[in-house]
């Protein structure tokens, strides 16, 4: 066994491979880049724009963490992952965190040994059909051909939904969102099903979005959130509280516009604690005092990110719904910064 261990070290040296020990933070800082796993392309959440810059709601979370840890929201290496490769990539250390509209489920958390640090989007699986089909409810879909993106929880939910309603259907499994859309538009499936946000994003891309309706049924709970590996709790804390800082900032009215002004002085103690002018929260995380200030200055608060990438002024046009602050009837509720 000793010989094998020695060989292991030798091989590691020969391969020039860096070892990902427990301290992800140290690695990230030494590397000067955050490796963040994102979707291969889902407009609004993560997609490269015409200049090849990654942009979107999930991408903003990566940039926020990079701003907190590396003082530079652009110091992110975006690694696009499919449904199949995302978990091996995270568990093998290829990425430091995953922000790839991934549903928080029991088995992923417990069995696959990951740590979901929170929820950045409360989603649910929905259905989209062409208006011309005159379908108003998912229970009228008996016998329909359904396009599904594979590698997600979607196909299981779908099977459950149709079985529990005693309906038959014809599933068409598809690898990427782009191809699903191609097939749906061509009419080779009647229904396209995926997370409601994804449906809205897809519909926004259509030539005539109003020709398509999202059915009222939401057949599953899909809390999407960033996740990290089990075992490195310091790193998990950093990602978790970066996300919480985004949410709390909206609740407390800190925006990218006024963050510098508020950092100059405010009479709200929690704002001061977040922005590092009071207390030593940053130090406890292993970062400097101004980490959250940088985060908010770089990407804005949760509401700003939402409005920029998904909100009603964007082509995607999602309402806040469940993703409103708890004070406004939503589910977003950051634990206190104290």
């Amino acid at each position: 066994m000793k010989l094998l261990n020695f060989l292991g070290v030798a091989a590691a040296v020969v391969l020039g491979a860096g070892t990902v020990a427990a301290a992800t933070l140290d690695d990230v800082q030494a590397r000067g880049k955050l490796n963040c796993g994102v979707n291969t392309g889902l407009v609004g959440f993560a997609a490269p724009d015409a200049n090849g810059e990654w942009d979107g709601f999930d991408v903003a979370v990566c940039r926020a963490v990079a701003a907190a840890v590396l003082n530079d929201p652009s110091a992110v290496e975006f690694i696009s992952l499919t449904g199949k490769t995302r978990f091996p990539a995270l568990s093998s250390g290829e990425v430091d965190m995953l922000s790839r509209n991934t549903t928080w489920t029991f088995s992923r958390d417990v069995d696959l040994k990951f740590e979901f640090v929170g929820v950045n989007y409360y989603d649910g699986q929905g259905f989209m059909v062409p208006r011309s089909l005159n379908v108003s409810s998912a229970t009228e879909l008996d016998g329909a051909t359904v396009c599904i993106q594979t590698g997600t929880t979607t196909e299981l939910n779908l099977a459950d939904f149709f079985r529990s309603n005693n309906m038959s259907y014809d599933p068409v499994p598809i690898e990427t969102n782009a191809e699903a859309r191609q097939q749906y538009i061509a009419g080779s499936c009647d229904v396209y099903t995926t997370d409601a946000s994804g449906l809205a994003a897809t519909r926004a891309n259509f030539e005539n979005p109003s020709d398509h309706v999202l059915l009222p049924e939401i057949v599953s709970k899909e809390p999407l959130g960033p996740l990290v590996r089990h075992g490195d709790h310091e790193w998990g804390d950093i990602v978790r509280w970066t996300l919480n800082a985004l949410i709390a900032a909206e609740e407390l009215g800190i925006t990218s516009a006024n963050v510098n002004e508020l950092a100059g002085g405010t009479n709200s103690p929690e704002v001061s604690r977040i922005l590092g002018t009071e207390g030593n929260l940053g130090e406890m995380l292993g970062l400097d005092a101004e980490w959250a200030k940088r985060v908010i200055a770089a990407v804005g608060n949760y509401g700003e990110i939402f409005a920029k990438h998904l909100g009603e002024s964007t082509p995607i046009g999602l309402e806040r719904g469940l993703n409103a602050q708890w004070t406004e009837g939503g589910l977003l509720y950051s634990p206190p910064f104290r």
Partner: peptide
């Protein structure tokens, strides 16, 4: 290469896809 190889390398090692 993509999914399984990482399990056969020493814990924590990664190399380029």
């Amino acid at each position: 290469a993509n999914v399984v190889l990482a399990y056969f390398l020493p814990p924590g090692t990664t190399f380029d896809l």
